[in-house]
């Protein structure tokens, strides 16, 4: 059972205090978008074995959404950061590259 530190209130919350929100950094496609764009937004998910970026909500705590970078295979956590970011912050990326030199980046 995971522990993730909520960047909003600083609590090291266990999984039962959190709600998962699936993949992070999706771009919303609304009216006017193509079928392909809408499909990518709604349905195409990376589901990688390895480095992954996810949305979590500290639902039994401060109620805030945040993002987490972790390895889906080893459950190693590279860091958590506020939801109001459109891409992983540089310090998290650096930590991932240090731990996973073979990682191809956030694509």
């Amino acid at each position: 059972m995971l522990i993730l530190e909520c960047p909003c209130c600083g609590v090291k919350a266990e999984e039962t205090e959190l709600s998962p929100g699936h993949e992070a950094h999706l771009k919303r496609f609304g009216p006017g978008s193509s079928d392909e764009e809408f499909e990518s937004y709604m349905f195409a998910r990376k589901n990688p074995k390895g480095v992954h970026f996810e949305r979590w909500r500290h639902s039994y705590g401060c109620g805030k959404w945040f993002l987490a970078a972790r390895c889906t295979a080893t459950l190693e956590v590279f860091g958590t950061y506020p939801a109001q970011t459109s891409e992983p912050p540089p310090d998290i990326v650096a930590r991932i590259k240090a731990r996973r030199p073979e990682w191809e980046g956030c694509k």
């Binding site: 209130c9 609590v11 039962t16 205090e17 639902s59 039994y60 705590g61």
Partner: peptide, 10 residues
């Protein structure tokens, strides 16, 4: 002030 759950409720 700690917000958490008590058994099954916030």
């Amino acid at each position: 002030l700690r917000r958490t759950r008590a058994a099954q409720v916030p």
